[in-house]
């Protein structure tokens, strides 16, 4: 990559396939081993956005994940879908991270990668589901961000013109370098070709440990020790039962209205 080439970093979180993952109501645990890892669905849109911009401006797309070693296959999938390079941060010392520690590790890795013009994240993940990592990474890197991007209207090497959902849709401009988080509306991710899939199966994923980031980061801020929030308990609420109150006869409607008022639904 030369100096004036456009460089996009896409942050990709490997998440369990939500259709397969099982939840234990009694023990209150999520059995992550029950489901294989896949690219967080929103990050597919992030990657597609990056590839589309690359197709316009040239340059390179790097995918970065912080995840267990098994996530290498997920990054290979990212390569099949158009990433030129993939970096996996994996180390015991990254484990147990909340969003602050996750963002710190990711921001450090991006620093280590060197020059970048644009970072693209998903709006949120289907597991942790906080939507915090994008803006936190931007803050740590000291760059502006626009969240909830639903449309990318124009791209140049200097700035982006996007539509962002902030309660209402706004047309906004972002100076680069900057970061965006994208929603599902931003594009429809393409399918990889078989050829790209086969090639990616043999592609190399760069694996970085905490020590590999020691020159750009304070390793004590990674993982559990760098995480101020802690999950103290998890409840798996049993499947909600419907109330099944079916009213018949003369005063049925009055009873319905009464019930809806009790629910606070007629306000």
């Amino acid at each position: 990559m030369t100096d004036n080439e456009f460089h996009i970093v896409v942050l990709i979180k490997p998440v369990p396939d939500m259709e397969k993952v099982r939840f234990d109501v009694e023990k209150g645990v999520v059995d992550r081993s029950s489901a294989p890892l896949e690219i967080n669905p929103f990050d597919l849109n992030a990657l597609e956005a990056a590839v589309q911009i690359k197709e316009k401006l040239g340059g390179e797309v790097t995918a970065v994940s912080m995840a267990p070693p098994a996530a290498e296959s997920v990054l290979r999938d990212a390569i099949a879908r158009g990433a030129d390079r993939a970096v996996l941060l994996t180390d015991r010392r990254f484990a147990g991270a909340d969003t602050l520690a996750t963002s710190y590790a990711l921001a450090s890795a991006i620093r280590k990668l060197g020059r970048f013009n644009l970072i693209i994240c998903g709006e949120k993940t289907v597991d942790g589901d906080t939507g915090q990592v994008g803006p936190e990474v931007a803050e740590m890197l000291g760059i502006p961000h626009i969240a909830y991007v639903t449309e990318i209207r124009e791209v140049t090497k200097e700035k982006l013109l996007v539509v962002s959902e902030l309660g209402a849709p706004y047309l906004m401009e972002l100076k680069l370098p900057g970061l965006i988080t994208v929603t599902k509306d931003v594009n429809k991710p393409r399918l990889p070709t078989l050829k790209d899939k086969l090639k990616a199966r043999k592609a190399k994923v760069e694996v970085w440990s905490a020590d590999d980031l020691a020159d750009v980061a304070d390793v004590s801020r990674f993982g559990f020790s760098g995480s101020p929030t802690q999950v103290v308990k998890v409840l798996v609420p049993p499947m909600k039962k419907r109330r099944s109150q079916i009213f018949k006869g003369e005063d049925a409607v009055d009873k319905l209205i009464e019930a809806l008022e009790m629910e606070g639904l007629l306000r």
Binding site: L100, Q132, G134, P135, E136, E139, I146
Partner: peptide, 19 residues
């Protein structure tokens, strides 16, 4: 709020719980 809060939390290096 969800676009703003994480920036504040990161700047203060404090924990943030979502939603």
């Amino acid at each position: 709020g969800r676009s703003l809060a994480p920036r504040i939390a990161a700047a203060l290096n404090t924990g943030l719980t979502a939603d």
